[in-house]
């Protein structure tokens, strides 16, 4: 398969995988908090988390870029620790992608948490379980489908992002040139044939990922481990 920018494909997959792990580590606790520990001001947190759904990627990318710049606290801390600027690095892409894809994980997971009968958690605590044990043994397994869906959506969304990557990462081969940018480059260079192949590859990959979630994974989630 000539013409496909395999370096960009590999970079995109690596980026999406790393971002997805971070998204689950950060997103599941946020979703739990939104679902079970509601405060009067919870809606504000919900709005902030959901912002990337409505903001143009360039706006988000611009603010992330500013936040990473050498004059910002984050940029200065990073420079002191890593010895170089944060912007236009792979790490910058990871941070920006986490922010950008967060709602795609938090929303399905929070909605899965909310669908769990609260009496199940209460029953667990009257049976002597700590809140942590209740979370691990009852809440997480029963929210499995939502977490699965969040993981796939977060992965696919990170794979497909374009505007934020361009703003924060630029277009450095092997560092920040992801597949979506490679396709853009190929079209700009009138390499329509190559762009077509790359695009088709991404299409098939995304379709396969979604099919796995909607098919085997969903059926498998009914066969859950025993106590």
């Amino acid at each position: 398969m000539s013409g496909i920018d395999w370096q960009a494909v590999g970079l995109s997959l690596r980026l999406a995988a790393i971002v997805d792990v971070i998204l689950l580590v950060v997103g599941v606790p946020i979703a739990w908090w939104l679902a079970f520990r509601r405060r009067p001001w919870t809606f504000l947190v919900e709005s902030v988390v959901a912002l990337p759904l409505v903001l143009p990627p360039t706006v988000l990318g611009f603010y992330v870029l500013v936040a990473m710049g050498p004059r910002s606290p984050l940029g200065r801390v990073w420079e002191a620790m890593a010895g170089g600027p944060l912007a236009f690095t792979f790490e910058a892409l990871v941070i920006a992608s986490v922010v950008y894809s967060l709602p795609f994980v938090v929303q399905p997971v929070a909605s899965a948490f909310r669908q769990i009968d609260p009496a199940l958690g209460e029953a667990s605590s009257t049976l002597g379980a700590s809140p942590w044990r209740t979370f691990v043994r009852i809440t997480l397994p029963l929210a499995r489908e939502g977490i699965m869906a969040g993981a796939v959506l977060g992965f696919a969304h990170t794979l497909g992002e374009f505007g934020v990557v361009l703003m924060v990462g630029g277009n450095l081969p092997g560092v920040t040139r992801t597949v979506s940018i490679a396709i853009y480059d190929q079209v700009q260079a009138l390499q329509v044939e190559a762009a077509n192949r790359t695009a088709l590859l991404m299409l098939l990959f995304s379709l396969a990922a979604l099919a796995v979630v909607y098919g085997p994974l969903r059926r498998a989630s009914h066969v859950t481990p025993q106590a």
Binding site: A119, L142, T224, A227
Partner: peptide, 8 residues
Amino acid sequence: QLALFPHF
């Protein structure tokens, strides 16, 4: 509503 754990 009994609240039996459906996944066990």
